[in-house]
Simulated scan of single mutants.
Amino acid sequence: MESSVDASVSGMCRIVRVGGEMDYESAPFFRARLLAEIARGQRCVVLDLSALSFCDSAGLNVLVAVWREAHATGVVVVLACVAPSLRRMLSITGLSDVLPAYATVAEAGAAGGWS
């Protein structure tokens, strides 16, 4: 599956659908595209990971970079539709504390009353 990032706006949230494999080879693509989405000025960004087929440590580093940039600029980032393997990596590394994950995009958007 080819790497993809597609975005739309729903209420106060920017919904960013991430697809493909987020690994060492694709990390620069995802980092650039996701940081660009953070910079668009929405107060809340939901990363919809339903089409993400694989994520390794390089992909996890991308998510950390996105969270750091968002946090520094006052943007809230939440995750939606996270695969069990990635959910486990987030939990083991403690990142689930700063990158909350929700079962659906709707739940993620509604979590803080942003949708």
Results as ranks from 00 to 15, higher is better:
D23K: 10
R17H: 06
P28E: 09
P84E: 15
D23M: 09
D23I: 01
F30V: 01
A72I: 06
L63D: 11
W114G: 00
I15A: 05
A80H: 07
M12L: 12
C13Y: 02
V82H: 12
G113A: 13
T93K: 02
A65W: 01
M22Y: 08
A51L: 10
L95G: 04
R33F: 11
S50I: 04
I15Y: 02
F30A: 04
M12F: 09
F29N: 03
S53Y: 00
M1E: 13
P100V: 09
G112P: 04
S4H: 10
G41Q: 09
L79W: 01
A58M: 10
I15K: 00
A106H: 07
S57A: 09
N61K: 12
A70E: 10
L79C: 09
R43Q: 14
V82S: 08
S3D: 09
L35P: 08
P100M: 08
F30P: 00
W114C: 15
E21L: 10
R68P: 00
R17N: 04
M12C: 07
A108I: 05
A110W: 03
Y24P: 00
A51G: 00
G59L: 01
L86D: 12
R31S: 14
Y24T: 15
V64M: 04
E37R: 01
T93N: 05
V45G: 05
A7I: 01
V105K: 04
V75R: 09
A108P: 07
Y24S: 12
